[in-house]
Write a protein that binds this DNA or RNA. Sequence first.
DNA 1: AATTTTTTTTGATTTATATCAAAAATATTT
DNA 2: AAATATTTTTGATATAAATCAAAAAAAATT
Lengths: 233, 233
Amino acid sequence: MNEYVSNHGSYCTISQCNNLCFDLLTPVEYELLKSKMLVINFKAGEILCKQGSFASHIIILREGLVKLFMENNSEKLVIQILPPNNILGLSSCFEGSSVFYYSAQAYMNSTAQIIDMGVFMSILNSNARFASKMLSLLAEHTVITYGRFFCLTQKQTYGRFADVLLCLANRIYKADKFPLQLSRKDLAEIAGMSIESVARILTRFKNDALIEITSDYVEILDKKRLTEISHKG
Amino acid sequence: MNEYVSNHGSYCTISQCNNLCFDLLTPVEYELLKSKMLVINFKAGEILCKQGSFASHIIILREGLVKLFMENNSEKLVIQILPPNNILGLSSCFEGSSVFYYSAQAYMNSTAQIIDMGVFMSILNSNARFASKMLSLLAEHTVITYGRFFCLTQKQTYGRFADVLLCLANRIYKADKFPLQLSRKDLAEIAGMSIESVARILTRFKNDALIEITSDYVEILDKKRLTEISHKG
DNA sequence: AATTTTTTTTGATTTATATCAAAAATATTT
DNA sequence: AAATATTTTTGATATAAATCAAAAAAAATT
């Protein structure tokens, strides 16, 4: 089995684009960017950008935790969960496009830098290394989306949920024991299943001593078996 | 309902990145690129690139039809169907990455230009407008993947299959009557369902006078209702 | 502290769709 | 043209997971 396949799980939800490389900008470009940049605080539950609305800016999440999702009248799909130091809106950077293709909502109080799209695009068109870096970030993000796409379409509930737990531990909280800031509803949404299924899987994982879960934290007890479950699907 | 949501169907499978903008290159860059470029013919069924293998090149499909897919031991997910004049491998263009994250296989005899990844990356790092254009192409591709992700995870079989038919008509063949070059197995794979489900849906659509299908062509008779089915899911 | 509201868990039922099995149709080979 | 192999269709059954319903637990409000 090749390395990538065996890593589907860890590619599942979280981007690792931490280095945003404003150091690639010239002083003039940096000043220009700063002059068109705002810092905004979002409260838990607030919307950072809305699917279908005019993509007038690029957003860099600096603190907090955010979900990207698509929705229509009845359905909702979480595309990705974004920890701090990730950029949001790159997929709207193409000619003829001027809208966001997903919404972003804060799970908790969050801080973001908001950069004017026009300025961002003009810098892209003048600074090759910066543009390359942004291509690189979008590529990385896209690969993560592929992994999640595979996970949600090919694996069944236990495998999907094992993936979610591993992602939370490995990518978001970077610890095997982490605070439980997400509700069963949030988890269900991320894992693409019903709330009841989440409850059932949690009880099962708990009984099998794979995890410990209380009202305020989760601890992964048997990462090896959880990874096996993720791979089996 | 916003415009994007109502367009999920048409975003479902096919990229429209036709203009590849080698005209953005300087003469020197163009010569360099050409010197490191090969043209290769692939027979139906042949593999253009293999998931997990070293991404030593960027591929531009010039003729034919290709599917991009991810697979593990037992499962297979078609990420996208690529008509001619599309670029393949941009998602491997990031630092630290050197592998393809999907495989590509030709549905029919196809022709592709193969460009050395090192040369491609070095041009990206020196030509801002070219790099911007590539970012733009990847962004467009990513948005299409989002649409397909939504389709495959949120819609059920009839909606998904209506989407596939509409995509074939609108994006690939650009006609309501088109040759049936894909087997039921191919269609099932694209729509993410079993072959038997495809057969059942086709009989149903035929009986309801939505389409006409023979051994060598498909004709869409009622695009409006098919679109409704796609939207309802 | 008692009451109300919300969230979570558990059990029973339903449903969409896969799988299994076999027949029919089509394509390929002899 | 006949025989064989493959693909497609149709029907019956199985299954994973959603939905429905209600109880239990936790959180919020009075």
